[in-house]
Nucleic acid binder design. Structure first.
Length: 379
RNA sequence: GGGCGUGUGGCUGAGCAGCAAAGGCAUCAGACUGUAAAUCUGACGGGUUCUACCCUUCGCAGGUGCAAGUCCUGCCGCGCCCA
């Protein structure tokens, strides 16, 4: 992998870049659609490419469980396995430490919800119910059959090497938003130790990104950024829990990014509401993955220039018009709201596919415009 | 004409003496940010001083009960069977 910065904005920290991989070039800033189980749900790889997607992120945890990395390796790697010809990343399973652990126990996302600011109930010694986090790695239970499985830095890297994505991530702990300072500090020690072990374990030529943690604590975020930056990673992931409040994410980025080598790409993990995207790019983010466009599509929601539309609402039966009048995606050129709404209400899976396609196209076009704005000195 | 059965909220469908009345569907609203996610949550007769109270409801009209959607009588509608 090779990263070139084509232009740095003079009015923000945004930058325009070029990420070269063995599977083509990624123009940054760029949205990375999520293909957890080696598929962007509802779409085939060719269709994903037609949404202007340049790079996808798949998942170590889920592919390890099913079908198992050996199957993917035998197929010739994940690109061939899923017939995706462009760039690919794999997440390390660090997010599942949270989502299957405290996330599940408390029913929370990694964004601190309203009114939860003072409920820091996770102390340094806390453990989630169905996941055990140790100094060496994490004991999970398979959500599929209950089997115990252990994943540590070495295991995650070995799996990711077999999967064979262009870019892999270090194994980390995505921290829960309800954790107190002491928990985060202790967790950071593990994430940092694992980061070193990941670099040591990696034998492949794949690029590897180290992940900065530290939750909402300035000193820990800075410490983490400096530490991860000191190691020999090819790029950076910025992860963990974030404030939900407006500007919270950017506050964290402003602590972290100045401490990262500016020549290396920066990936914001799991952020990307439409209203977040411009801000994180202005803070200096080059890549970001988010389930929102695909996930919301399967809830019946279309992102448009008029805002979010919930196509399940009866009123759309009467709308003989495209999802977005300015969109020129395949869906908007060929189908109208009344039809998509009908498919959705009738429980037809094609509705989910059409919405997924449109949303990805819409998000990618949105980011494409931001790239143009950086180029034209507007951002 | 006779016999049996049935009539419940937008629909469907439980309840067969203590109910504003289960489920489901539909509708409306909310949630979702490195995906255990084609999911989950809430409202769904009306009103108010809304973790409580009031009013109106189970084909129609009477009756028996402290109490009736639930029992009895008649009527109306629908279904099946026999003439």
């Amino acid at each position: 992998m090779n990263f070139k910065i084509l232009k740095k904005s003079k009015i923000s920290n945004a930058r325009l870049g070029f990420l070269e991989t063995e599977h083509g070039v990624v123009e940054t800033p760029c949205l990375v659609p999520v293909a957890t189980q080696a598929v962007v749900k509802t779409l085939e790889s060719k269709e994903v490419e037609e949404t202007k997607s340049q790079i996808l992120i798949s998942n170590t945890f889920w592919l390890h469980l099913r079908p198992g990395e050996k199957i993917v390796e035998k197929a010739g790697g994940i690109h061939k396995f899923m017939n995706w010809k462009r760039a690919l990343m794999t997440d390390s399973a660090g997010f599942q430490v949270f989502s299957l652990g405290f996330g599940k126990d408390f029913g929370v996302t990694k964004f601190l919800g309203k009114g939860m600011e003072n409920k820091k109930s996770i102390g340094a010694a806390s453990q989630p119910k169905s996941v055990k986090i140790t100094y060496d790695g994490v004991y999970f239970r398979s959500p599929i059959n209950g089997d115990e499985l252990f994943l540590g830095p070495k295991e995650s890297i070995k799996i990711q090497e077999k999967l064979g994505a262009d870019i892999i991530f270090a194994f980390d702990e995505c921290t829960p938003p309800l954790a107190d300072y002491n928990y985060i500090k202790k967790s950071l020690d593990k994430t940092h130790r694992w980061a070193k072990l990941c670099l040591k374990a990696k034998k492949s030529k794949q690029a590897i990104f180290g992940i900065v943690q530290g939750s909402e604590f300035k000193d820990l975020r800075e410490e983490s950024a400096k530490f991860i930056n000191s190691l020999n990673f090819d790029g950076f992931g910025i992860g963990g829990d974030l404030w939900r409040e407006k500007g919270g994410t950017n506050k964290i980025l402003n602590w972290v990014i100045p401490n990262l080598n500016e020549k290396k790409p920066r990936h914001m993990l799991g952020v990307g509401y439409l209203e977040n995207i411009e801000d994180i790019i202005k803070s200096g983010i080059d890549l970001f993955d988010c389930t929102v466009p695909t996930h919301y599509a399967r809830r019946g929601i279309a992102f448009t220039s008029e805002g979010k539309l919930n196509l399940k609402q009866q009123k759309f039966f009467k709308k003989r018009e495209p999802l977005d009048k300015d969109c020129i995606c395949n869906v908007c050129l060929n189908y109208k709201k009344d039809y998509i709404s009908h498919l959705l209400k009738a429980g037809e899976i094609t509705a989910l596919k059409l919405l997924t396609f449109h949303n990805l196209y819409y998000f990618n076009t949105f980011v494409e415009k931001i790239r143009a704005d950086i180029k034209n000195n507007k951002i």
